[in-house]
Structure formats: C-alpha cells, structure tokens
Simulated scan of single mutants.
Amino acid sequence: MAHHSRLSTLVLDCRVDDLAPHVAFWSAALSKAVASADEDGDGRYARLATAADEPVLLLQKVDHDSRIHLDIEADDVEAEVARLEKLGARRIEKRHAWWVMEAPSGHRFCVVRPQRTPPGPHLNRWD
C-alpha cells in the first residue's frame, strides 16, 4: 500500500529557561509573525506564521544543546519510518505518535503525523 510524506517542519530546539525572548528574536529575524506563543499551553512550543507552501517554523524548549532539526510528516508514520530505515536511518525513540530518528550522518529528525491539510503540491508518493 502506498503512503505519502513531505518536509513538514523546521524545528528550532532551544535550550533556554524562557522561550518567549527567542520567539521574539526569530520572529523579527525572519519577518514572520508569531502564530502561537504557546502552542500546547505548556510553554514548550511556539509557532511562527508561514505561508501554506512553506514549512512550519516551530520553536521547541529542550534539555539538550540548541540545534535545528526537521520533521517529515507522513500519512503512515510506520511505513515512512520503515522506508527511511531501508535508506540507513535508525529509530532512536518513540514519543507520543511520532518517531525520533537519526540519519546516517548523525542528524536527528522526526517522522510525524500530517501537520497541515490539504497536503499541498510537495507531497511524495511511496509505493
């Protein structure tokens, strides 16, 4: 059965006590309005406004060193994870409904459920 995936989100992992000043910085630096200063109501996530054909820009409060990672959204998370494993990626940790993965290069990324609808023009189909 075919599944679909695409680049979904660029996540700015921020090792900070207070995310708000960093949201303000990236909002001004990228000229993107703050769409949500507290995405889940726990102070861990904030989202900048992006156009429908741009990746989501998410800031995430983390305990590890600051870095940027990307999310791949898929309509079948397990099928996408299996496809990426065949390419050399490995599973690191399952969190809620998504997987933290590691590319052969050592970069971490996540495979998540669809984040936006409609899926848009940049959707990949995998058979």
Rank of each mutant, 00 (worst) to 15 (best):
D127N: 10
L19I: 06
D71P: 01
E102C: 10
S66F: 04
T9C: 14
R113I: 11
H3S: 07
G120N: 12
A46N: 03
V112A: 01
K61A: 12
D71L: 00
P104W: 03
L7Y: 05
E54A: 11
W99K: 01
S5I: 08
E93F: 11
H4C: 07
D38C: 04
P114Q: 04
L123M: 11
R67M: 13
V77N: 00
V11P: 01
V56E: 08
R116G: 03
A2M: 11
S8K: 01
P114E: 02
V56I: 14
L59A: 05
H22T: 07
P55M: 12
G88A: 09
I68N: 11
A33V: 09
P121A: 14
H69Y: 09
K61Y: 06
R67F: 13
D40F: 11
V23H: 01
P104I: 11
I72C: 05
Q60P: 00
G41S: 09
A20G: 08
R91T: 11
A79Y: 06
L59N: 02
A46V: 02
E39P: 04
K86Q: 13
C14Y: 02
E80M: 02
L123A: 06
R47Y: 10
R113V: 12
E80C: 02
A49W: 05
V23W: 02
T117L: 14
Q60W: 09
A28C: 08
E80G: 00
L57Q: 10
P121D: 14
R6P: 02
L59R: 03
L48W: 05
R90K: 06
D65Y: 06
L19W: 01
E39L: 14
W26F: 14
R90Q: 09
P118A: 12
L57T: 09
A24R: 15
V16L: 08
A74W: 02
M1H: 15
